[in-house]
Design a protein around this nucleic acid. Structure first.
Length: 220
DNA sequence: GACCAGGCACATC
DNA sequence: GATGTGCATGGT
């Protein structure tokens, strides 16, 4: 077992011991999670939930019905999630692709091998690396690691990744040094978000942080 | 009133 | 290729 494996495993163990399972992603269906992955971009979780609730209340949380909505109506429903005009376009771009490439069938999309599915998602305007990986991991159960700003912050802060690490590089750090296990990647990402949000935003909070004692940058 | 939130596309240098 | 900016709501 390499030193990186040991370090990443230690990090995970500390976080899981401190916080326990995070139960991500709290969606009722894979399709809802895919929609949520787009709507949550740069958005607080509570606002995403309002948008999802509005879609459900309108009974359009379904590929066909969502796609049939006039663009203005879609934007109106997802308004609470912010950047609603942009997200309405992105959602529609995704829905068009989903219908054309997979007949809006989750099983069809899930049957595509991970690398090819990821490449396809990245071709859709509005779906970048993080959103693609969120869909692949949280909606489809593929073992792909989701990197976000929190992941960066925690890894850099504790000197587990150099400052200039790129998205794919940081993603590979996890994937190359941990078993390709979707449940593990799911929990790990959620735990990183949890620790980044609850600890270390102010220097004083380092006391009692589950990562206390690890190497640490000066900046909180 | 500033700042942030489970990003991304696009313009500009 | 590296920054900077628009998108936009709602909570702190």
């Amino acid at each position: 077992m390499g030193s990186k494996t040991a370090a990443l495993t230690d990090l995970y163990d500390r976080l899981f011991a401190a916080y326990g399972p995070q139960h991500w992603w709290p969606g009722e269906s894979p399709f809802e999670v895919m929609v949520g992955a787009i709507l949550t971009q740069n958005t607080a979780w509570a606002n995403l939930e309002k948008a999802i609730a509005a879609l459900r209340a309108a009974d359009v949380l379904d590929p066909q019905r969502l796609r049939a909505l006039p663009p203005g109506r879609l934007a109106e429903l997802i308004r609470p999630a912010g950047t609603f005009n942009v997200k309405a376009r992105r959602l529609r771009a995704f829905l068009e692709w989903f219908e054309g490439a997979h007949g809006s069938a989750v099983d069809s999309l899930r049957a595509v091998a991970l690398p090819r599915a990821r490449a396809s998602l990245l071709e859709i305007r509005g779906i970048g690396p993080e959103t693609a990986d969120s869909i692949l991991l949280y909606a489809l159960g593929h073992p792909t690691f989701v990197v976000d700003a929190y992941t960066w912050r925690v890894l850099r802060r504790h000197r587990l990744a150099p400052d200039e690490t790129g998205y794919d590089e940081l993603k590979a750090l996890f994937e190359d040094n941990l078993p390709a296990d979707a449940a593990l990647f799911n929990e790990y990402h959620a735990l990183l978000v949890r620790v980044a949000k609850t600890s270390c935003r102010a220097r004083a909070r380092c006391a009692g942080c589950p990562l206390e004692g690890l190497p640490h940058d000066r900046e909180p």
